[in-house]
Design a protein around this nucleic acid. Sequence first.
DNA 1: TGATTTAATAGTAATAGTTACTAATAGCGA
DNA 2: TCGCTATTAGTAACTATTACTATTAAATCA
Lengths: 125, 125
Amino acid sequence: MRNTAQRDTVLKVVEASCDHPSAETIYTRCREIMPEISLGTVYRNLKVLVELGKIREVSILNAGDRYDKTVGLHAHFRCKRCGCVLDVPANDLETLEKGVESKTGFQIDGTEVLFVGVCDKCRAI
Amino acid sequence: MRNTAQRDTVLKVVEASCDHPSAETIYTRCREIMPEISLGTVYRNLKVLVELGKIREVSILNAGDRYDKTVGLHAHFRCKRCGCVLDVPANDLETLEKGVESKTGFQIDGTEVLFVGVCDKCRAI
DNA sequence: TGATTTAATAGTAATAGTTACTAATAGCGA
DNA sequence: TCGCTATTAGTAACTATTACTATTAAATCA
C-alpha cells in the first residue's frame, strides 16, 4: 500500500462531496484538480478506500453505485423526481440490526437502508 | 398490455423461485420451460411485472438486480461467503418508514433494507 | 370465422458501468 | 542513489441491461 497523489485526490473529492456522487462524477471532480488522472485509477482507489473504511459505498436501486464520506450507520433516501440522494439519520438502525442478529443467528457486518419516494422540495412543486 | 405465454412463464418462474434469482437465472429457468424465449423478453417482462406490482426488484450491493416473488415490506440478507440472499421478516420496518416520513416530510413509496454478513450455515463451517 | 390492428416477440446491436491488461512511472526502503 | 514493485494512464474487455427491427400473434371487429 503506497501513498499516491491520486489516492489522496480521490479521498479529498469524496470528503468534499455532500451529494453521494457516482464514480463518474468523482472522476470529473478529480480531473478538475488533477487533469491527468484516469477513470480506472478512480475506480481502483474508490475500492481501496472502501476496503480501508475511509468512505462508504451506497447502492441505489436501478442505478450505479454511489459513494459517501459518512461511514457511520445511517440510511439514505432517493427522490424519484429529482434523483437526489440524501442522508437520513436513523438511530434505531442499530436496534434493528441487533434484533435481526439475535433472531436469525446471522453475523451482520453492514446494513443498507434505502427509502425511495418524493422529497419535500419536489412535493412542494 | 397483452397476455402472452412469455409473460406468464416469467411470472411463474419468479413465483416458483425462493432464491431471489437474477435476470440471467430467470432466463435460464424460463428456457427450460420455453426454449425459444429471448433474454430481452425476460428483461422487459420483469420490468412490466415489477410495475404491475406482481413481483419485486431487490438491489444487492455490488451485484446485478435480483427479483423476489414476495412484494410485501420485508428486509433481505446477503451472505458474503456463500452469496445466498434470504428474506428477513422485519415487522418494525413500517414503524421505521413512518418515523422517517414524519421527521423529514418526505413521501416514502418503498423501502429497501439489506443486511450483509455471514449466514448461520457459513458461520458453522 | 377471417381480416385487421398493433402490442409483444426473437434475435441482434448498442450502451453504461465497471474491471482487466500492459507498458511506463514513481514511492519508498536499503 | 539504486532497485524493487505498487501504482499509474490509457485502452481493451467484460457484464448487465436496454434499444432496435423485422416478424409474429393476441385481441378486436366486420
